[in-house]
Amino acid sequence: MASLAADDLLLARDLVASGRDDRELARACASGTLVRVWPGAYVQAGVWHALDPREQHRRRAVAALVTRRKDGLLLSHESAALVWGLPTWGWPAGPVELVDPTARRGTSTARLRIRASPLPLEERATRSGLPVTSLDRTVTDLLLSRSRVQAVVLADHLLHSGLSTRERLRALLAVRAAARRRRTAAWAVEFGDPGGESPGESVSRVVAHDAGFVVPELQVPFSDGDGLIGVVDFAFPVPDEPDRLVLGEFDGDVKYRGATYRHGRTPEQVVQDEKSREDRLRALTSTAGFVRWTRRDIADASRLPDKLRRAGVARKR
């Protein structure tokens, strides 16, 4: 099991075997040199604080596996989702999640949840050197255990990326027909849309739906006399005006700070380019309104609906 440890994960048993003692580890933590990320597992403080929450959770998950005195455990649910590269919304904030195929009952603490569940071989996998539930099993577990919004975020990602199809997701849920949250999961699968490119867009769509707004088209390209302007996240139809649309954009932090999106531009250049793009979109004869919102607007159930209403987005009749 020790081979599963991340390169930057320091195990107390290895440090003690090399001549260091528990008091030295305690002093290193007290001085801020090391961070104790799990009982018996440490990471250099500089490395730890540079990690995003997903990678911090990953280190804890690896530590939980390598410090347990039992073989056969697998990462599951959100911990497995992180290893599979599935999107997150509102987590990882909970415990590391494992499954024990041989146990009769599970255990749960604020830091670690171990479920007792039989796992056939086809539902077990190894990814990045870590034992995890298979992608299908991970997806099914998440759809049946997470919130309605989180289930839509997952469904959108799977459909957009081509990792799964609606038919496949329906089949996975059919196998677990007796699951308590199957109806909610089934709704999320049907509501899922391959046009959902980010978790923020998926959550926005749920909020707009719950507030009764018309169904938007997703990822719609627009052009003018100078060529392609760009692809707009949401295009809300205007009732009785088939050629008119209210355009909407979800602005995630990555748009202005993510290096991949900026393509070498400074954040200031991105802002200026976005302003120019918005001006061109507003100038189109088909544009009946334009609205932007952020993660803060979808965290409050009233903020996004208010913005959409003021921009002229119609409600369903």
Rank of each mutant, 00 (worst) to 15 (best):
A171M: 03
Q269A: 13
A116P: 09
T107L: 15
G195T: 06
D240K: 02
F222W: 07
L34S: 08
V43D: 01
T102E: 15
K316L: 13
L159K: 05
F236A: 08
P92V: 08
T266R: 08
R292W: 01
L82D: 14
L75Q: 03
A259E: 15
T126N: 08
W187L: 15
D243G: 10
L121V: 15
L51C: 09
H160P: 10
G212S: 09
P194R: 11
A171K: 10
P39A: 09
R36L: 06
R183A: 15
L9F: 01
G248C: 12
L86N: 12
D21C: 12
R68Q: 14
G46Q: 09
E201R: 06
R54A: 08
T165L: 09
P95C: 10
L11P: 00
P237I: 07
R23W: 06
A63I: 02
T266K: 12
D8A: 11
A155N: 04
V291S: 01
P92S: 10
L245R: 06
T165Y: 14
G200I: 05
R68G: 14
L75A: 02
E78G: 04
D233F: 05
E97H: 08
E55G: 03
L173R: 06
D279R: 11
A64G: 01
R244L: 05
W48A: 02
A17W: 03
G248T: 08
S108D: 15
D71M: 12
D273M: 04
A61S: 14
V246T: 06
L284S: 09
T138P: 04
A64V: 00
W84H: 15
D136V: 13
R68H: 14
V62Y: 03
E241Q: 11
T294H: 00
